[in-house]
Each structure stands twice: as structure tokens, then as C-alpha cells.
């Protein structure tokens, strides 16, 4: 198993221990979303979750973020129960839908978590300006969300999640709505932030090349109920634009594709 930043003695960033998750238990519409999930993510790792639609990827992120409570099993984050990690604000979440507050300007949306963490006005302004630059939206701070395109909104929501430099980033298909060029740019930026800050990232995606380009490990989930089908180690070293043309890159994407095919075929 490859870890980006060493430190094997530290506790895991995320530890999912035989977790089952069912919705509407006992009703006719009961859904078994996840079944006996075991997964450890080390600090500083970049892990992607990939799998067919409806297999429970978003549910898994919500469990890590303590937005859902598992039916059985346990989730710990940085060695504490997920609940404590949420209260300690150890993670930032980028949801599948941007979920901006449409009565707030872009800048104020990015500053929302800072406001809740009692940052001073001056610090907030500095940080939001920095974040706007990062997601290539300088000049849009005073716009309202309704004046932005879908991809721009998603970038605002990424800036919002990054604004308070959380130790763990939970990202649910954050680049799904972006065009190919912006997407590759954002991938590069995300890797840069990840390396600079030593953040741990759990990243949900539908894109095989994206998962290969970004991750240390790719977790392939099967559907109904969601189970960990396989975990693929990615060893591509330092990522550069050339990485995407590296034969080893193709090898990795092929490996992921085959694992996914096996899973989809089983549905």
C-alpha cells in the first residue's frame, strides 16, 4: 500500500469498521445502501471512490462526515468518533450539489464557515480573496450565485470547503459539472493544495482517468448493496501534465476499468 506522506505511527485519518447502512429500516422501502464496509485511509492519502450510480458513494462520504449514522459498525476520523471530528471541524465537505446560499454574494458564501468559526472580518476578506484566486474566480466575489454557471458555482463550493484548511476533504463528484480544460486545471490545483497542506482527501468520481490521475488508491464499489469490490494501488509518482500520456497511466486506467466492468456486469 502506498502512502504519500509517511508517519505510520499516526492514527488513521478515516477508519471504517464493518459498517452497514440501511435506509428506512423496517419499512417497505427499506434500502440496504452499504454492506460490511471495511476501509482505512491514512493521513495524507488521496483516495477515490468509484462505482456504479446508486452504489452508496455519497452515503459513504456522509457516514465519514457524521451526517448519517451507520446502522451497524463504526466510523472514526483521526482516531475519534466521527461525531467528535465533525464538532471539531476536522473536515470540509464538497457536496454533489453546490448548495450555495442564493441570498449571499459569492464572497460571503465562501466566508460562511469562517463566519461560523468567528474569524475576524479582515481575515475573512483576505482568505476569500485568496480562495477566489485559487478557483479562478477573481472578480466574481460580488456576484450572486444565480449569476454564475453550474461549473462556476461548483468552484465556489470548493473554495468554501477549502477556506478553513480542514485536515480532511470529503469531495462528492466536485468536478462533474466542469468542462474538460477547467477540470484538468482544477485537478492540478487540488493536487497542489493536497501536497502543500498534507490534507487527506476522499474523492468520489465517475471518471476513471480522474481517479487514476489524482489518487494513491482507488476503491471500487459494487452496487446493491454497496460493497468494497477491490482496492487498486496507483503508483504514478509525481503527477505532471505528461502523466496523462504515460503508458503506466493507461495501465492503471485499464485496471480500474476492468474492475468496474466486473462490478457493473454483476448488477
Amino acid at each position: 500500500m502506498s502512502t504519500a506522506i509517511g508517519g505510520t505511527t499516526r492514527e488513521h485519518a478515516v477508519c471504517i469498521d464493518s459498517v452497514d447502512m440501511a435506509f428506512n429500516v423496517g419499512n417497505d422501502d427499506e434500502v440496504q445502501a452499504l454492506s460490511s464496509i471495511d476501509l482505512q485511509i491514512e493521513q495524507g492519502e488521496f483516495v477515490s471512490l468509484i462505482g456504479p450510480s446508486g452504489c452508496g458513494k455519497s452515503t459513504m462520504l456522509r457516514l465519514i462526515g457524521d451526517l448519517l449514522t451507520p446502522t451497524s459498525g463504526s466510523v472514526s476520523v483521526f482516531g475519534k468518533p466521527a461525531h467528535d471530528a465533525r464538532v471539531d471541524q476536522d473536515y470540509g465537505m464538497v457536496f454533489q450539489h453546490p448548495g450555495l446560499f442564493d441570498w449571499r454574494r459569492v464572497r460571503a458564501n465562501i466566508e460562511l464557515p469562517l463566519e461560523l468559526h468567528d474569524w475576524s472580518k479582515a481575515d475573512r476578506t483576505d482568505r476569500s480573496a485568496e480562495m477566489l484566486q485559487l478557483v479562478k474566480l477573481d472578480g466574481f466575489g460580488e456576484y450572486y450565485p444565480r449569476q454564475l454557471s453550474g461549473g462556476m458555482k461548483q468552484r465556489v463550493s470548493i473554495a468554501r470547503a477549502l477556506s478553513f484548511s480542514p485536515r480532511l476533504l470529503l469531495m462528492d463528484e466536485p468536478f462533474g459539472a466542469l468542462d474538460e480544460m477547467t477540470r484538468e486545471h482544477m485537478q492540478g490545483e487540488l493536487l497542489r493544495i493536497w501536497k502543500e497542506t498534507g490534507t487527506t482527501v476522499v474523492f468520489v468520481t465517475h471518471s476513471i482517468p480522474e481517479s487514476a490521475f489524482l489518487s494513491n488508491r482507488v476503491v471500487v464499489l459494487s452496487a446493491r448493496p454497496g460493497e468494497v469490490n477491490s482496492v487498486i494501488d496507483v503508483n504514478l509518482g509525481e503527477r505532471t501534465p505528461d502523466t496523462r500520456e504515460d503508458p503506466k497511466f493507461f495501465q492503471t486506467t485499464t485496471e480500474i476499468r476492468e474492475a468496474l466492468r466486473a462490478v457493473e456486469g454483476a448488477v
Binding site: 451526517l67 463566519e115 461560523l116
Partner: peptide, 25 residues
């Protein structure tokens, strides 16, 4: 929307803060 409520929950915002920052607006 549930997404907005979930966002405030991810910030561990107390009930009162959620009222002022999200529900009243």
C-alpha cells in the same frame, strides 16, 4: 433544502446559528 441543512450540520452549527444564518434568510 436538506442539502442546506446538511451543510450547516457539517459545520456543527448550533440550532440557533442555523436559524439566523439559514432559516430566517
Amino acid at each position: 433544502t436538506p442539502e442546506h441543512v446538511e451543510l450547516m450540520r457539517s459545520y456543527a452549527a448550533p440550532w440557533w446559528t442555523t436559524l439566523v444564518k439559514l432559516r430566517l434568510p
